[in-house]
């Protein structure tokens, strides 16, 4: 495709909004909150991203997917930079993204911890089951199929489910 006459940050954001998280293919990299800044200088686009988890293996894949999506729109001069501050938090996910997660079968993240440095036991309400809505669920493990998920089981519908864990 021919490059648009004038590339704007908004146009870039719109294209990035079509790039899905490869592990959670219902929310985009923009909704995930990893795109921190987009600047445009003529035909040159600079994108600043921040990692979800330090070792998330999907980060590089998402970078490639973003470059490919922009390339399909004729935007080929793209540079990525990584920043660590402010640290990524699930609190950046909006209500729409949370609802998409729930419909996909992943319990959306509750608000990130604001309590003290050392929290050996977590006192928080049970995570509602994304399938049947029951609040009678139990945490099986705070580590799940990807770095960003925890494993729960619903005592009502007996369904194991993932939670996008608050960070």
């Amino acid at each position: 495709m021919v490059a648009p006459a004038v590339i704007t940050p908004d146009a870039v954001y719109e294209i990035l909004g079509s790039v899905m998280d490869p592990e959670v293919p219902v929310i985009s990299v923009v909704e995930l909150g990893i795109v921190r800044q987009v600047t445009v200088d003529g035909a040159r686009v600079a994108i600043t991203i921040t990692p979800t988890y330090s070792g998330c293996p999907a980060m590089r894949e998402m970078e490639r997917d973003m470059a490919a999506a922009l390339g399909a729109h004729g935007i080929t001069d793209v540079a990525f930079a990584t920043v660590y501050a402010p640290a990524w938090t699930t609190d950046w996910m909006g209500p729409d993204a949370r609802e998409k997660l729930r419909k996909f079968g992943i319990a959306p993240p509750s608000p990130a911890e604001r309590d003290g440095l050392i929290t050996l036991t977590r006192a928080r309400a049970a995570v509602p089951c994304p399938y049947c809505g029951a609040k009678d669920t139990q945490l099986k493990s705070e580590f799940g199929s990807t770095a960003c998920k925890a494993i729960h089981v619903c005592n009502s519908c007996q369904q194991p489910f993932d939670e996008f864990k608050p960070l």
Binding site: S54, A87, T89, E113, I118, T121, E142, L167
Partner: peptide, 22 residues
């Protein structure tokens, strides 16, 4: 730069500590 990496890593390591102490 070090402070930024530390702040990020801290959030993850709090999960580790809760797991290992459990």
């Amino acid at each position: 730069d070090l402070a930024a990496i530390a702040a990020k890593s801290l959030k993850e390591d709090k999960y580790h500590l809760r797991h290992s102490s459990d």
